[in-house]
Design a protein around this nucleic acid. Structure first.
Length: 270
DNA sequence: ACCGGAGCCTGTTAGC
DNA sequence: TGCTAACAGGCTCCGG
């Protein structure tokens, strides 16, 4: 569920609660939530570690801890991170909770149990292989052009490939292609330079809009304080099959590409 | 390189 | 109302 803007919003919201806090214990009722190390080892290694920085890389939350440890969390389809008082009853979808000082807990709510927790010395162990961050300086239209060269895939499937570009998921892929006026089945290596430039601008526009609106609460996403984002009110095509295109009024179509729902305007996306 | 399908999970919604 | 099937924002593995 959470894509780059939702994870970024979560990171920003967690910082005031968590920076300089020290973990005190790990609670868990579903050990497969912990990808690495074992739950037993996590319980041994995490308590006493202080949170020195929190960053986002692609759709991962990265907590830099004291003693050269890094806690990494991926929310996958249905994860939420919440900071609450330890006394508050746990919802049944909370499967991991991290004890903090001052009676608080960082809770990992995860309806579909796809999310994962990692504790590693070297973050690259988890993050290696990710493509460029689309909102950072190095991601220019020229850089995008170079990466598209020789790729024969559909634009939609390529945008979802985390090794091609980091952090774009199904919502923002569809929205980006809409803004760029490009059909999701256009082949990556067949774009004209002006189309590459339009795609570059469109990806950044869609992601920045998502961040400004603090994420899209279309299905399950919530911010750490339990409130909703606002991006769902600004979505042009995603999950709007049959609705009029905001640009030309043609009904939005839905097809399946790479096993994922894909929404676009057949009139103005070519 | 790239595609499709299965798998991981639980819940909601659309359709009959 | 009650059942079933489809669908859900991610990602990995496997075979072709």
């Amino acid at each position: 569920m959470p894509e780059l803007p939702e994870v970024e919003t979560t990171v920003r919201a967690l910082r005031p609660y968590l920076l300089n806090q020290t973990f005190t214990y790990v609670w868990n009722d579903w050990p497969r939530h912990i990808a690495t190390p074992s739950l037993e080892e996590l319980r041994f290694r995490l308590p006493g570690r202080c949170i020195q920085a929190i960053h986002r890389r692609a759709k991962y939350l990265v907590f830099s801890l004291s003693d050269d440890e890094t806690l990494i969390i991926h929310l996958k389809m249905s994860g939420r991170l919440l900071v609450v008082d330890r006394d508050e009853p746990k919802d049944k979808h909370v499967h991991t909770a991290f004890g903090l000082e001052h009676g608080q807990e960082l809770r990992f709510w995860d309806l579909r149990k796809f999310g994962r927790v990692y504790l590693v010395h070297n973050p690259e162990q988890v993050l290696a292989g990710l493509g460029p961050e689309p909102l950072e300086g190095g991601f220019t239209a020229e850089a995008l052009q170079e990466r598209l060269y020789g790729r024969t895939r559909f634009l939609k499937t390529l945008l979802l490939d985390q090794s091609f570009i980091a952090g774009v998921g199904n919502i923002y892929a569809d929205e980006s292609l809409f803004y760029a006026r490009l059909h999701p089945q256009r082949l990556a290596n067949a774009l004209q330079p002006d189309e590459v430039a339009a795609l570059h601008t469109a990806i950044q526009k869609a992601l920045n809009m998502g961040i400004e609106r603090e994420g899209a609460s279309i299905n399950l996403y919530m911010k750490p304080d339990g409130s909703k984002g606002d991006m769902q009110n600004a979505v042009a095509v995603y999950q709007r099959t049959g609705d009029p295109c905001p640009r030309c009024g043609t009904p939005i179509e839905r097809i399946v590409l790479g096993g994922r729902s894909t929404h676009f305007c057949p009139q103005c996306q070519r």
